[in-house]
Amino acid sequence: MNILHALFKTSIGKKVIMAVTGLILVGFVIGHLIGNLQIFLPPEKINEYAHFLQSLGKVLWLIRIGLLVAVVLHIWMAVSLVLENRAARKKGYQSQKTLRASYASRTMKYSGLIVFAFIVYHLLHFTVKSTHGEDFYPMTMLHGEKVYDVHTMMVLGFQQPLVSIFYLIAIALLSLHLSHGFSSMFQSLGLRTRSWSGLLEKLAITISVLYFLGNAAIVIAVMTGMVGIQNPDFASCCPVEAHEVANAKH
């Protein structure tokens, strides 16, 4: 019980929860990006990968519940910390200079909120599949099995300018969030020391920039037509026409 009290009821404990759940979520988004980058390979690859994840069954649900718990704890602790911080200084300064705090660190709650809104939309879009008509969730044959054509789903998604813009904004904000969060979690766990704090800050920036570029590459590849629909059911070479076909069917 001491441990639970230390984790959930003390200032340092709450930060430890932020750090550990943050680490889990960073690991997830990086893994997710690597999975998504398979869009640059033949469609069978990403469809096979998606089908493999879907076929995990109970394990998939364990992962989902684990991630959900991590997200809930991360947000719960963040809200609790923000409320306590507000209460710690009710009357502010007439003028206060920022001495060395980074822009990212000062906007964590806003970047976090917008990313959360995006995650909700993203789950409705691709996991619940309720944001678009059924034409946006085509099937394909893979090794004699009928599976979701994730390759086409992604292309159809990013062919909509609004979805792409929201995606890019969310990815940019998540990268900003990570540029502080990635080194911050080491500090909260007591692992950031003078001997490598400089390297750690650089690593955090590098990971954030690479994360943004990786995701942006997918969006840009689809929007410029470099990656198009390859599902024969859409009978079209050209992404724009395929989009129109989908709309017409809808």
Partner: peptide, 10 residues
Amino acid sequence: GFGNCTNQYE
């Protein structure tokens, strides 16, 4: 009643 550290190092 002090606040929490957000690792900004101000």
